[in-house]
């Protein structure tokens, strides 16, 4: 067993309206950040786990996303292992 640290990034799929991102975009504009074209917000999860190999860790993390961390109807996810 080895220990791994991973980061999972969950974002709304392209084409899915992101009202929170829109509100943040508006707030940035009102703070004077005029060059902002678009804001899309999402979530990150920092996960420490034990697994027999990096490949096994990646497999587990993908399963976590599919089963719980992301709602794949509306969200995409990306797994990065350090």
């Amino acid at each position: 067993m080895a220990s791994f640290t991973a980061q999972i990034r969950v974002t709304l799929k392209r084409g899915v309206l992101d009202p929170q991102g829109k509100a943040i975009e508006g707030a940035l504009g009102s703070l004077g950040f005029e060059g902002v074209h678009q804001v899309r917000q999402g979530k990150t999860f920092d996960i420490s786990l034990d697994a027999s190999s990096k490949a096994k860790a990646e497999e587990e993390l993908n399963a976590m996303c599919e089963k719980l961390l992301a709602n794949t109807v509306i969200e995409d996810y990306a797994v990065t292992i350090e």
Binding site: P19, V73, I74
Partner: peptide, 17 residues
């Protein structure tokens, strides 16, 4: 029920937040 896959689609944050 949508999260459990018993109904299609998803319920997102209200458009006016």
């Amino acid at each position: 029920l949508t999260e459990a896959g018993l109904l299609p689609g998803a319920l997102m944050r209200n458009n006016r937040l």
